[in-house]
Design a binder for these strands. Structure first.
Lengths: 121, 121
DNA sequence: ACTTTATTTCACCAATTGGTTATTTAATGA
DNA sequence: TCATTAAATAACCAATTGGTGAAATAAAGT
């Protein structure tokens, strides 16, 4: 599977997102990460494997613990991908901009009308 | 399933992302969307159902066609969620900043050292 | 050497996913 | 009315997913 797909897939589970949220506050052991959830340790191990497979966490050894660390780099790719579509979900704001521009123009009749033309569909 | 999860799940498939990419250039019928892929129509219909379920597309009727339209709103939520982690994947740039600041300080010994302290884990 | 603690692996299960072909529904056009 | 085109549904399949309990592994403490 491609990087983007495996990252999205890893992020599609609320348990895994909660794990990432906790890890954003600092590294943690598997048992620590498992605590908030009503699931078994093997289930947590599996979630961690998915996150590791997506490159979203890295692991090391420290005595009998296997601490996890957040590796947010793959999110950068996700962010870049999603930003492609920003203009789409901000269209309504564009219309608001256009509206406000209209109002301003109306108030100052000497000014020229500016075209925005960012809408593509 | 929660909105964020179903959005991430919908985006975790390259075929569905390609469909969204095409739809970002304008509305399209199912057959038009299916053309670039070596899969059957029912498979495309299923992908569209997943996208519709996540609120990423909307559909209407026009003669015997069922045109699809991109609805990027759910991506806004994804963007907001992912931005929470931006400081994490930009840490290395922070260290670069810090390094460059050090170099500058070394070159101009009269200047004070600036602390950045954006690292939280 | 034995026990405890932390974690993984194994073998299984039910539900979901992404795909198929064959059939049905819906609207248009001859 | 009948054929055509567009799309959805039905029934099925193999692979994946998220979970389980039981057993194995690894390091530390006694």
């Amino acid at each position: 599977m491609d990087r983007l797909s495996s990252t999205f897939a890893a992020l599609a589970d609320p348990t895994r997102r909660a794990i990432l949220a906790k890890l954003s506050l600092g590294g943690a052991s598997v048992t620590e990460l498992a605590k908030p959830f009503a699931i078994s340790m093997p289930a947590v191990t599996k979630h961690l494997k998915v996150l590791e497979g997506a490159g979203l966490i890295s692991r090391s050894r420290e005595a009998q613990f296997r601490p996890c660390k957040l590796e947010a780099a793959p999110m950068k790719e996700v962010s870049r991908w999603i930003e492609q579509y920003r203009w789409c979900w901000e269209e309504s704001f564009d219309r608001l901009d256009a509206y406000l521009a209209e109002v301003q123009t109306a108030e100052k009749p000497g000014k020229k009308k500016k075209k925005k033309a960012r809408k593509r569909h």
